[in-house]
Structures are given as structure tokens and as C-alpha cells.
Design a protein around this nucleic acid. Structure first.
Lengths: 154, 154
DNA sequence: CGATAACCATAAGAACTCTGATGGACATCA
DNA sequence: TGATGTCCATCAGAGTTCTTATGGTTATCG
């Protein structure tokens, strides 16, 4: 059956989307692995990291920054809040805004988890020359643009 | 607040993982969009496409081919089965294997959905010269390798 | 001042994903 | 023959994600 699997794999190799998908999967698998000792998932880490850069940001802004919907961010924040890693209070300025911040425990955990996450990125950076890294970013950015451009049919 | 968001975006720009993530998100967003008229999600389409290449494959093999866990594939197949797009029967050779195939309705739907999905890949291919496409595949493949290699610490 | 638009939070429902654990079937080899 | 190892399917539980829809607040503009 190995031969059949090779035949199948060949049939989809030409699709560039597959290369992107495999890379992303490897990336989140590795990040998940290094974050697991801290009890954090990748989305949880991403939210905490963003909160460390912009304390008190609204959930909606946080969602935009992490490229997820506000609903997704709400569930992530609820989990983090239940563990005492973040706290949410109504804003004094805007009654409908929930101000979200890392707790001291959250800050402490993030410091350790961030070191592990950054190490993964560093392994990626060190695999490439600066030129190659720029090239990769450029190619991926062009892929994003062509994908986001509404196609001719609409 | 736009200035703060720009400052934050800058703080993560160096991470190559972000470029990969954005590309993958754009890819699945676009594929979801073109598949929606057919009532298919990206994982459902991927499973049906794989089934068209290897009719009667086991769920476990299908999962490996689609790079998901057998558990995930089971949920996808259950959904497809409930819609009459695939059928699963115990194998005559191996009692514990469920042979999965596309139904006629599944084949008909896949033909139409595949045209839409391939069109997305084609837009991607046409954005790049053959050299660039090869370069992108190569860079991403190297990223996968470095991520999958167990790091020095272990 | 009032209407419209923009923004925020959240509920409901469906789908996908994983880890961990269980149990059955097959194959190989001692 | 029997033990070991491998493969398959599935349950249970937790987490993330989306779409769709609701309702409240703020800001802008006529």
C-alpha cells in the first residue's frame, strides 16, 4: 500500500497550497509541543503575548490583532480568566468595553512560555539566510494578496 | 489607536512564523469561501478528494493522507456520511477496517467543488513564475524539516 | 436633537482539532 | 501455539474556530 500512498501524494504535490498547509501544521505542532509544559495552547499564548504588548486592550481589538473573530477570542479569554492568568473589568470610559489585562501570575507564566516560543521562531530564522527569510516573507505576502483579492468572477 | 496597532504589528514582524500563519489563514479563508456554495468545509473537501484518489481506503490511512488524527477524520466522515456523500462498510478482509467510498452523490458534488478549489490553487500558481513557485516550495519544505527535527535540547 | 453608522460583547449552533484511553483484530516470530 | 507488536476504530473531554443573530453603546452627521 506504500506505493499507492506515494502515488496519491504525488497527485497533490503540485498544489502550492499544500506546501503552505504543511508548513503551518509543522509550525503549530512544534509550538504546541513547547508550550504544553506551561499548560498553554498556541491561541492562548498568542492572546497573552498580545496583551503583554497592549495591556488593557479591548477583546475586539485583541481579536483583530490575533486574526481571529471576537467570538473566538472570547472563548480563549474565558479559559485564561478561569485560570487567573488574565482579568477583565468594564472600562471606565466605555461601558460596553471590557478592559483585559494579564494578572501577575499571567505575566510570570508568559515570560517563561515566551522564551520557549521565541526559541522555535529562532530555529526558523537560523535555518535561512537573511536574504532567504526576506524572500520567503515576500513570496508568502504575495500569496496572501492574490488570495485576498476578490477573483475576477465577483 | 491605529498608531498603537502599528507599533504592535511591528513588534512581531520579525517572526517568520507569522508570515506562514497569515498565508495559511488567507488560503483556508479563500477555499472556505469558494466551497461554501457546495455546503462543504475545507476538511470535508480534502477528505472527499483523497477518497476520489483512493476509493475504499481505511479511515486511518485517509487521516494520514490528510495529515489529521484518526479521531478528526472520524468526525469529518460521520458528517459526510450523514449527508449521504460517503458510505462506510466493514471490510471483507479485515473485520476491524471500515471501507469508505464516495457515493454517486458524493462523486457528483466533488466534481463541482473540485473545480472551484483547483481554481484557487491556479490563482496561486499564476501569481508566481515557475522558479518562484519552486523557491517557495523549497523554503517551506526546509521550514518543515527544521521544525520537525527534534531540537538540540531533547 | 435625532438618525445612521460603527463598534463592542455575547449567545447559539455546528464543525474541526487534539490528547488520552480502550478494545478488538491481525501478523510475526519464538 | 502463544506472546508481542502493530494497526484500526471509537469514546470521552477540552479547546478553537466559524457563521448567524441579538442588543447595547458611542460617534458622526444631517
Amino acid at each position: 500500500m506504500g506505493a499507492e500512498e506515494a502515488r496519491i501524494a504525488e497527485a497533490v504535490a503540485w498544489r502550492p497550497g499544500n506546501a503552505i498547509k504543511r508548513a503551518e501544521q509543522a509550525l503549530i505542532a512544534e509550538k504546541s509541543r513547547v508550550l504544553r509544559p506551561f499548560g498553554l495552547t498556541v491561541p492562548q499564548y498568542a492572546a497573552m503575548y498580545a496583551l503583554s504588548l497592549a495591556p488593557g486592550i479591548s477583546g475586539a481589538k485583541l481579536a483583530r490583532f490575533c486574526s481571529v473573530t471576537p467570538q473566538s477570542m472570547t472563548t480563549v479569554l474565558k479559559t485564561l480568566e478561569s485560570r487567573g492568568l488574565v482579568e477583565r473589568r468594564p472600562s471606565s470610559d466605555h461601558a460596553q468595553v471590557l478592559v483585559t489585562r494579564l494578572t501577575r501570575a499571567g505575566q510570570a507564566l508568559l515570560r517563561k512560555a515566551d522564551a520557549a516560543a521565541v526559541a522555535v521562531e529562532r530555529r526558523l530564522v537560523e535555518e535561512f539566510t537573511p536574504d532567504e527569510a526576506d524572500r520567503l516573507r515576500d513570496l508568502l505576502e504575495r500569496a496572501v494578496v492574490v488570495l485576498q483579492d476578490t477573483p475576477a468572477g465577483e
